[in-house]
Design a binder for these strands. Structure first.
Lengths: 155, 155
DNA sequence: GTTGAAAGACCTAGTGA
DNA sequence: TCACTAGGTCTTTCAAC
């Protein structure tokens, strides 16, 4: 597949790095049968042109204090630009909110919320989320088990 | 906060790495006022003990061929172990499915599905997802805009 | 676009304090 | 935990193909 000025080598590099960014250039050049200079130059370009946004460590949330993940569907009173912007700006400030998407369909926003347990979620809901203006309803669903959870897009 | 045999230095390292794993040990030791030997030893331990699962590159999906993200709620016919296991095993094989969670509430599974556009989503739905056994309903919601999307847990 | 080499930076393990 | 050392590895640059 050729895409957006990327050739197969670029795609292959992205595939590898989005699964394991600890690979060295040397390891990648062996896998792809290119020279290390080529790999280095390609990766630099992929970063400079914004294909690679950042590299992050993925932590084990069950060993940390964030074992409860909730998905909350939020419906707002109205859909003026001001109401939408205010909600987006304020909800993004909460560290418990890992993701906030505006959605199509029967609700306005979908939030992914990470807390330690149901008490902590309740505190977040009552003291933070529910204090934001113009919220009509919040409906929450909780993760029972995680079958698959990757950050890699299909390329 | 002290947690799971982690002291403040460990927590600080995790906070940094889950936002930017390209930091060198040297940079981290400056930020935290510790020696580079200490930082190296701590990170090694955090990996060995499974607090750090892996490091990955986060790509810009809008510049790649995955600009449409759907969240799909799946309800199954029955909840026998066999039905649940089969669904989880089969749905995890699809590269379009980035996340699969079993959930509390009015549906059984929540999927995050990445495709290039609505046509590709439709093809995935008809040719892959809907062919799995024991599915009663699938209700899908699509991402209009992304206000916040981080992989870092609140620590 | 690709290569190979050279210089510099970094990682890693070890020591003694 | 720190400071220091030293060998090995990796990154980064650059001239040349």
């Amino acid at each position: 597949m050729v895409l957006n000025n990327l050739d197969q080598t670029d795609i292959d590099i992205l595939k590898l790095l989005q699964k394991d960014a600890s690979l060295t250039n040397k390891e990648i050049c062996y896998k792809l049968n290119k020279s290390i200079g080529t790999i280095h130059q390609r990766i630099q370009r992929l970063k400079d042109e914004g294909f690679i946004l950042r590299t992050v460590a993925i932590l084990n949330r069950k060993k940390l204090n964030t074992s409860l993940i909730a998905f909350s569907q939020v419906l707002l009173n109205d859909h003026t630009a001001d109401t939408l912007n205010t909600f987006e700006r304020e909800v993004a400030k909460f560290p418990e909110v890992m993701e906030c998407f505006q959605m199509t369909g029967t609700f306005d926003f979908l939030l992914r919320i990470a807390t330690s347990d149901m008490d902590a979620y309740h505190a977040f809901y009552r003291n933070k989320l529910a204090t934001l203006p113009n919220i009509t309803t919040v409906q929450s669903f909780f993760v029972l088990s995680e079958t698959k959870s990757i950050t890699a897009y299909p390329l």
